[in-house]
Amino acid sequence: MVLSPPSSRLTSTFATALQAAHDAASGQNYLPGALYVVATPIGNLADITLRALHLLQLADVVACEDTRHTQALLRAYGIDKPQAQLLAVHQHNEAQAVQTVLERLQLGQRVAYVSDAGTPAISDPGARLVAGVRLAGVTVVPLPGASSVTTVLSAAGVSADHPAQGGFVFAGFLPAKATERAHAVQGLASEVRAVVLLEAPHRIEALAQALAVLGERALTVGRELTKQFEQVTTLPASAFPQWLASDANRTRGEFALVLHPAATAVDSSTDTRVLKLLLAELPLKIAVKLAAEITGQPRNALYDLALALKTDPADQQD
């Protein structure tokens, strides 16, 4: 998300929000000496939460990916932090920055961590910082909010026909090198659950070509989510390259994508019957291993199916 310098009109727009944040959140307890992991908008400034606004005002230090970007974000909301209260913590210095943050926390300061956009420590930096702070026995408090992962999933309409297809896998960014990316896509071909992917505009065409080998498998493409030119469309994976090529604007902006569950059902009566018979005589892991060898179905899918069969009262009465 790229922010322009805030106008007085923009900051005045959020004056009411700052007051509402104070009214709604100031009565809660914000421990000193704690790390607050704060989600920020992925594009639309109005997607900030009231609790995030209050905590960002309250924080003694705001650790962030890019101090200039975060300074612009804070000023857009009418929050003015001096440069001394901003601390750069990004992918290149995160391991070393843990000690600096711990020193601030040990002084009893409240430290907020924000990434450039969305929820930190998912695909953006923050995970090493959180792990280091937790290892030191210091409290970490999550402030939930915007995330490209949940945003694109909510608009994709993913549904599972079988327990083995339930849930989703977060794969994030696939490898940049063509051979490694192709290998990763081969792995996705055998994944029966939904898969969430992220991609930058300069690599989206290469990703589209790689995913095209998945043929008719449904793919939801989210582009510029929550922004003015947001697009969300679902199409066969094989049609993705042509969809991009048909309009130059479609290669612009950040992408979040959902590869839908495999259309081929993994719960055929034969597969389920084989698994039931094996589960009746063998431990779960051995039964799944043998069922995978017999049916040719992915072991992970059969394992999920086995768990469902084990917990299904109807099956326990057979």
Score class of each variant (00 low, 15 high):
Glu230Lys: 04
Ser246Gly: 05
Val258Lys: 00
Asn249Ala: 15
Gln231Thr: 15
Gln297Ala: 13
Gly296Leu: 08
Thr311His: 15
Arg273Leu: 11
Glu224Trp: 00
Leu278Thr: 00
Ala301Val: 06
Gln242Gly: 07
Leu275Lys: 02
Glu216Lys: 13
Glu216Asp: 15
Lys276Glu: 14
Ser269Gly: 08
Leu219Ser: 08
Ala314Phe: 06
Leu257Glu: 02
Lys289Leu: 10
Ala308Tyr: 11
Lys227Arg: 12
Phe240Asp: 00
Pro283Met: 10
Val213Tyr: 01
Asp271Arg: 01
Thr272Ile: 14
Ala301Pro: 01
Val213Leu: 06
Thr270Lys: 00
Ala287Phe: 04
Arg252Cys: 08
Ile294Thr: 11
Thr311Leu: 14
Phe240Glu: 03
Glu216His: 09
Ala287Gly: 11
Ala210Lys: 06
Thr295Val: 10
Pro298Leu: 10
Ser238Met: 07
Ala306Thr: 08
Ala262Glu: 14
Phe240Ser: 04
Ala212Cys: 13
Asp271Ile: 00
Ala239Thr: 10
Thr234Met: 04
Leu257His: 03
Thr311Ala: 14
Ala280Cys: 10
Gln297Asn: 13
Ser238Gly: 06
Ala256Asp: 04
Ala245Gly: 05
Ala308Ser: 14
Asp271Met: 04
Asp247Ala: 12
Thr251Gln: 11
Leu282Asn: 01
Lys285Ile: 08
Ala212Trp: 07
Ala301Ser: 14
Arg273Cys: 09
Ala248Tyr: 06
Leu290Tyr: 08
Val266Met: 11
Leu275Ala: 08
Glu293Met: 09
Leu219Arg: 06
Ala287His: 05
Ala237His: 00
Ala218Leu: 15
Val288Met: 07
Phe240Asn: 01
Thr220Asp: 02
Val232Pro: 02
Ala245Asp: 13
Glu281Val: 10
Leu211Gln: 01
Ala308Trp: 15
Asp312Pro: 08
Phe240Val: 07
Leu309Asn: 08
Leu214Asp: 11
Ala314Pro: 03
Leu282Met: 14
Leu302Thr: 11
Leu225Cys: 02
Gly296Gln: 10
Thr295Asp: 06
Val288Ser: 07
Ala308Lys: 02
Pro241Ala: 09
Pro261Asn: 08
Lys227Asn: 11
Lys310Glu: 15
Ala262Trp: 04
Arg217Gln: 15
Gln242Tyr: 03
Glu230Val: 05
Pro241Phe: 04
Glu224Tyr: 00
Arg217Gly: 12
Gly222Glu: 03
Phe229Pro: 03
